[in-house]
Design a protein around this nucleic acid. Structure first.
Lengths: 235, 235
DNA sequence: AATGACCAAGTGATCTGATCATTTTCATTC
DNA sequence: GAATGAAAATGATCAGATCACTTGGTCATT
């Protein structure tokens, strides 16, 4: 075969994966919808079952589809996303952790500023809800859950910017590994302070004050970073 | 089986994928190194070939490994990364394209500022080389190649920040689709202007002037965005 | 000695056709 | 009407085979 000019060597698998995505798009399926059974896909595309499965595994790896044993193939949570957190990423080292937080401290403040300008309704409600949940968890002392919800707050904040790509970027850098690592390192500042800072950021966004939202977010993340740097030096 | 407290249901495949990554890590293999043959892996882990292949497809999807027909399995380019561009992402719509550029206009300026403070040596050289190549392509008129190299410049700039996570984020939002889309839309400003602006940014970074680097990068990206918005309204 | 055609081994790609495990459905039973 | 349990649907895994591509070496040609 030729595949002239280009360099592409589209294997059967490449075509399959693309075709299946196209099929999902054609049917206007979205996250959570059931797709087709493996056998049915094999018949439809006139290929063997293991081949379909390989293609599905590829899609599955980026959250485009989800395979549920005994149940079926479903459209995944991350279909259509441009930016992803690497689902196979190793637990980051201390250095990488700090680097990750520095990246957040650089990216999130301007995102907060944009959020204060745009203020997507649904995201505002989510932020409010996150804060309420966090308040309860501060009381009950469930620190693992609390760390999770705090991350949710940052993600909701990014969603309030109305820019899906920014939301995806922020989501990617706030992914679970961070929480795990923080817990492992026993790093945490005053939890009430965190909550207060989040509340202040929320207030600035609701008030539509970009400069304040940006400054507060920067101070908040720099604070977290300072605490962590401190802990790493005095383990 | 139980998998008590947690919710995890680690299938054979999950274990396989993790084990293979661990194997790569143990052997201290890095990008481009040859790994093991499919058959050998099947023997090693006492599983069937199709199962190994499914696991490999999962790893392959995020660039952790690469399968070369007739040759072998190799360690991929993106192993160990935290943030990725979705390799299965659809070609973005106009709206999504603009959103993507807005995200870049928000993220890259502060990254440029950091780059001007850190100035990673290797990345500076790469920026210099990118500019030289771009200059040649402006002359020769190879617009597709030029667009590609211009993206390289932005990625090199991010690498100069010394923060791998930031570099990954910028890489993720400057991925090929953008170039394709730009070409499709026939959108482009004055190519000489682009080159000049890139040179100015480079100079600011070399001079170690964060504020200037940030401002120039912002103006540059806002300019690109303006051109595109303009074109989309007058197709 | 350099070059190029050819062959063979290694390896990925795909197929066929099973069997096992889990979930879901639904008729049966109490 | 709710609980039970068989049956169907579906994913997970296996075994073994054949096809296709890459690579390195052989060997004839030049």
């Amino acid at each position: 075969m030729s595949t002239s000019g280009g360099v592409v060597r589209r294997s059967l698998l490449d075509d399959l994966a693309t075709s299946m995505l196209a099929l999902i798009a054609d049917r206007k399926l979205s996250s959570g919808d059931q797709f087709e059974s493996v056998r049915s896909l094999a018949d439809r595309f006139k290929v063997a079952v293991p081949t379909v499965r390989e293609a599905l595994r590829r899609l599955e790896a980026t959250g485009a589809v989800e395979l549920r044993h005994g149940s079926g193939v479903y459209v995944g949570q991350h279909i259509g996303r441009l930016v992803l957190a690497n689902p196979l990423a190793p637990t980051p080292s201390s250095d990488r952790l700090i680097e990750l937080l520095q990246a957040r401290a650089l990216i999130e403040p301007p995102v907060a500023a944009l959020a204060a300008r745009v203020r997507t309704e649904a995201a505002l409600e989510r932020m409010d809800s996150d804060l309420a949940t966090a308040a309860e968890l501060v009381e009950s002392g469930d620190h693992a859950q609390l760390a999770e919800v705090n991350m949710d707050f940052h993600r909701s904040l990014a969603q309030a910017s109305g820019n899906a790509t920014l939301a995806e970027v922020v989501e990617s850098v706030t992914v679970v590994n961070v929480r795990e690592q923080l817990e492992i390192l026993h790093i945490h500042g005053d939890r009430q302070t965190d909550l207060d800072e989040h509340r202040a950021i929320y207030a600035a966004v609701v008030a539509g004050d970009p400069e304040l939202a940006e400054r507060l977010t920067r101070e908040h993340l720099d604070g977290v970073l300072a605490v962590i740097n401190n802990r790493l030096q005095h383990p």
